[in-house]
Design a protein around this nucleic acid. Structure first.
Lengths: 210, 210
DNA sequence: CCTGACTGGATAGCGACAGTATCTAATCTA
DNA sequence: TAGATTAGATACTGTCGCTATCCAGTCAGG
């Protein structure tokens, strides 16, 4: 199919498609001649995926590039690929405070306590967790620092459920797609449900309070 | 205190403080004279809060303004105020697709099933949930549309725990602060834990797979 | 009293980001 | 053969969240 059809089919403008090709998010079409290339349904799929990630998850274009690159490396295991996806999808929280050994230790302790033995000891996510813990402690949010424990089984159940949804029988590109969509869209789903639950529980507690 | 002290204390530049005052995120200092105003520790608190919301949650300045405005309305109940906070903190997912009655019905059904009876029938979050459900269905993410049911008790437990952390004995501004911090920072915490859990469970399932 | 640093307020500018638009020369299609 | 379309390059736009500059008035130290 030609580029204009691809644009019509996906609702993405021709200019944007060209931009994505330039940025390496989308492979160029198969060249038929100097001024004509052919796009197939793999392009349609990819483009739809990219749009969902941007529209729903506001994933920056640079992160999308990292995701594409991770899929490309065919020597890595699926798990390595997923690890790179997690790294790319983590929003860089700008916490300029210097690294803090204490909170980092707390973070490791939480991972330990959750029983997530397979998390790389050098996973960047651990530092990120430490940063967030630092913010929580600094802002006096948690009177009970062990309260995190309450989250762990719940989060574990959610993550296990989501991973079970991924069909191991598919090719790696499809699996990556499911992983990334799960991470972003179901993450949004989760936060949305949580806001609704907040509204309900806040009503139970504070409806009368002025 | 003078503006330069406020800046030093919070690590926010004088120019940025002026910008926040312009945008209505921060009240102007108490005027001592034509060219001098006094800032107190309420300004320090507010400023620290604003920075956390921006640095950790990437909350847009416009949403921060909505939050401040919601706190200002002293006639509303605490619950109304929290409702406005939820509205402001929802990232506008650009799903240009037309509203869909079917997914909206599904959304209402989920809220129902969760037992969140106190959620306003016209809560904007319901539409947002409908949009996300539409994306989930369109992208063929969920083979099992009832799978959402698995999330509900977990999310409910998390939200209930978080609301219980809010100290009803405080003034409304402090309660709002706790609510908003909980929403944003603990939301980030939750997603961070989830990514770690994803890494663990992905290792269990796909470590060998190439 | 003088001088230089600082202030509130207004306005203009900047850099990153995510596209858009324009142009060119070639090529396809009616 | 004429009008539309294309790949590719380059330049432009609009939004966001600050920054920088300017102004004139004021304060604090010597």
């Amino acid at each position: 199919m030609r580029i204009s059809e691809l644009a019509d089919l996906t609702g993405v403008s021709v200019a944007t498609i060209k931009y994505y090709v330039r940025e390496g998010l989308l492979s160029p079409g198969r060249k038929l001649s100097e001024r004509l290339a052919d796009y197939d349904d793999r392009h349609v799929r990819r483009l739809r995926l990219l749009r969902v990630l941007r529209d729903v998850g506001a994933v920056p274009v640079g992160a999308l590039k990292a995701l594409v690159d991770a899929t490309q490396d065919r020597s890595a295991t699926v798990h390595d690929m997923f690890g790179k996806a997690c790294d790319a999808l983590r929003v860089e929280t700008a916490v300029p405070a210097s690294r803090d050994d204490h909170t980092r230790a707390l973070a490791d302790q939480i991972v330990d306590q959750a029983g997530w033995t397979k998390v790389r000891p050098d996973a960047p996510e651990r530092d990120h967790l430490a940063d967030i813990i630092k913010v929580i402690l600094d802002s006096g949010l948690s009177t009970d620092p062990e309260g995190a424990a309450a989250y762990l089984p719940l989060v574990d159940a959610i993550a296990a459920y989501e991973l079970d949804q991924i069909d191991a029988g598919q090719d790696r590109e499809t699996m990556m797609e499911q992983m990334v969509l799960g991470q972003v869209v179901l993450g949004e789903f989760l936060l949305c449900l949580r806001r609704l639950a907040h509204e309900h529980h806040s009503a139970l507690r504070f409806a009368e309070r002025r």
